[in-house]
């Protein structure tokens, strides 16, 4: 469903990730782990079109999207949760969701809202609240629910559990499982490497802007991650 072939991408004229060959099957959940600065976020941004691609091709659902603008990729069904700044803080929860479903008609929006709020009932009582005043966990919930407004088929999440208390981290992973259950293809970038591995079918390890390991999560869970991160650096 998603295929990156020999991709070199970065910011301005500076390549950050190199020689990326990744292929994601429909319905698969793939965890991406790796040390800080290894290019995980850059890989995610490259798939949604927020970086410059210098070499290689990106194919999504049979469409070549290597140089297509983000808005077109959204229309093709790619949804992305950024690592930082993933809600509009000065807008209400409801407005945030409306913006997520910008292309929907009024009736479609209503239906979609109801559907999303069923999955994220904790937001129902907070629709009129400014997103900036939500707790960290609620904010991530809002960001995740916004993703669903466009009815995506591929969801890319960049550290949805970062900076949250352990209890909240578990809630986030529950939601991740819920997304898996409805058949979405997931790319999950995580600092909580062990959690990510246990909630995915496959794991990619990135070090120094390269994918150094791609294997079934079962097998990766048996490895000593520190050794993997360092040996391949």
């Amino acid at each position: 469903m998603l295929e990156l072939r020999g991709v070199v991408a970065g910011y301005g004229r500076l390549p950050i990730i190199t020689g990326i060959d990744v292929s994601i099957r429909r319905g698969e959940t793939v965890a991406i782990i790796g040390p800080n600065g290894s290019g995980k976020s850059t890989l995610a941004k490259t798939v949604v079109g927020l970086t410059n691609v210098f070499e290689g091709t990106i194919i999504y659902d049979g469409h070549e999207i290597t140089h297509r603008p983000p808005s077109e990729r959204v229309r093709l069904g790619i949804a992305y949760l950024p690592q930082t700044g993933n809600v509009f803080p000065d807008m209400t929860v409801l407005e945030n969701l409306e913006m997520g479903g910008y292309s929907l008609s009024r009736d479609e929006l209503k239906v979609k809202l109801q559907e999303v709020l069923e999955m994220f009932p904790e937001l129902s009582g907070r629709l009129k609240q400014k997103a900036g005043t939500l707790s960290g966990g609620e904010r991530q919930m809002l960001a995740m629910s916004r993703l669903l407004m466009t009815s995506p088929s591929l969801v890319i999440m960049d550290e949805p559990s970062a900076g949250l208390a352990p209890k909240m981290v578990h809630r986030i992973f529950e939601k991740v499982d819920a997304l898996r259950k409805v058949g979405l293809t997931l790319l999950l970038i995580e600092q909580h490497a062990r959690m990510a591995i246990s909630h995915s079918e496959r794991t990619l390890v990135m070090v120094g802007g390269k994918v150094v390991l791609s294997d079934s999560s079962d097998r990766v869970s048996g490895l000593d991650l520190a050794t993997v991160f360092f040996q391949r650096a």
């Binding site: 229309r75 950024p82 913006m99 292309s103 916004r146």
Partner: peptide, 25 residues
């Protein structure tokens, strides 16, 4: 209005507006 809210969204975070599917241009 929807257009006005989209303006606020773009003003607050252009990248997020783009990946949310707001027709920024």
């Amino acid at each position: 209005t929807k257009v006005g809210k989209a303006m606020r969204a773009i003003a607050s975070n252009r990248d997020l507006a783009m990946v949310s599917g707001i027709p920024v241009w």
